[in-house]
Nucleic acid binder design. Structure first.
Lengths: 162, 162
DNA sequence: TCCTTGTCTTGACTCAGTCAAGACAAGGGG
DNA sequence: CCCCTTGTCTTGACTGAGTCAAGACAAGGA
């Protein structure tokens, strides 16, 4: 496993170091971790690891295409190892939990802007905001009656999403 | 015009004050302004305005549904007066310029996550990343050959967008 | 006009992230 | 196998965006 990471690092032109392997190990077991929890987690494997080292490692991983950085509004940046498929994210408004979503391939008319205003677009980033299952029951009586804990397509199609 | 804003403020339960009218005036002539340029701009009308006052005004406007806050990754928050239609944004990777995009209404299958992972989704936020017209010509020879300054649908459908 | 209450000013503070200088270690050349 | 180069990590100071709190002030109803 770590051999695989060493491989990935080398083929991205990066040296294999303990800080990098520690960060990769944390990201593998905890996708969508923020820099701070990566520091904490990676210290299990490398106790002297400094926050700045983690920022440096993460920048190198992102630049090398091994990790991806996501920045949900109002929260520190999160990092994940799943790259290259441009999947999207569900973010919980209450607790900040993040889940991956695959986008329907080949049928994404909404991702083609109706008017590009002269821009050359190379990426469409989608964030779905809502409440995760746990938060629906903790503070959710207000907006999440029991029958509609699962979203129905027409709620989005006809609703505020446009 | 300002009378209209006074009206909007009052119907949102907010008092009509000079700082608020100044901020609204800046937002009206410059959509997608960040807090700092709002401070600068609003000082034309109210020279003693403090940055903290602007943060307070913006928070009140957003809470009252008069303004909307958007936070493109890696940039300070931007504010706009266009609310209630959940439109999306084109952001220039090079200069940060932002343009509005309407989303095709009623035909947005990509905005329905294939798997909601138990989340109740109430909003889908879409950001299109690319190069604006000006930046295509300034630093654009690398990725923006003259014939493809306008996006073609298949580039997105079959490409990295998923 | 007065009074209440929401708003603004001032200033200290937090948090995420960056920058720079020097110590250190990965890994290719001898 | 060891040394040397060069990329990486450590330490510590710093920036920029935004928040918090206390008191001064002003909007607008009685």
């Amino acid at each position: 496993m770590e051999t695989t990471w060493a491989h990935e690092l080398r083929s991205a032109g990066l040296r294999v170091t303990r800080p990098r392997l520690s960060v990769l190990s944390v990201l593998a077991e905890r996708p969508h971790a923020d820099a701070d929890s990566i520091v904490t987690g990676a210290r299990d494997l490398h106790p002297s690891l400094s926050p700045q080292a983690v920022y440096g490692v993460l920048k190198a991983l992102v630049a090398g295409g091994i990790a991806r950085r996501i920045e949900p509004a109002g929260a520190p940046a999160l990092f994940e190892l799943r790259v290259g498929d441009n999947h999207h994210h569900l973010v919980c408004r209450s607790c900040g939990a993040v889940a991956d979503v695959d986008c329907a391939v080949g049928a994404a008319p909404c991702l083609v802007p109706s008017d590009t205003a002269g821009y050359v677009v190379d990426e469409a980033e989608v964030v779905f905001w809502g409440l995760c299952r746990d938060c629906q029951f903790q503070d959710g009586q207000l907006e999440a009656p029991a029958e509609s804990v699962q979203i129905h397509e027409h709620e989005i199609r006809g609703g505020a999403i446009a």
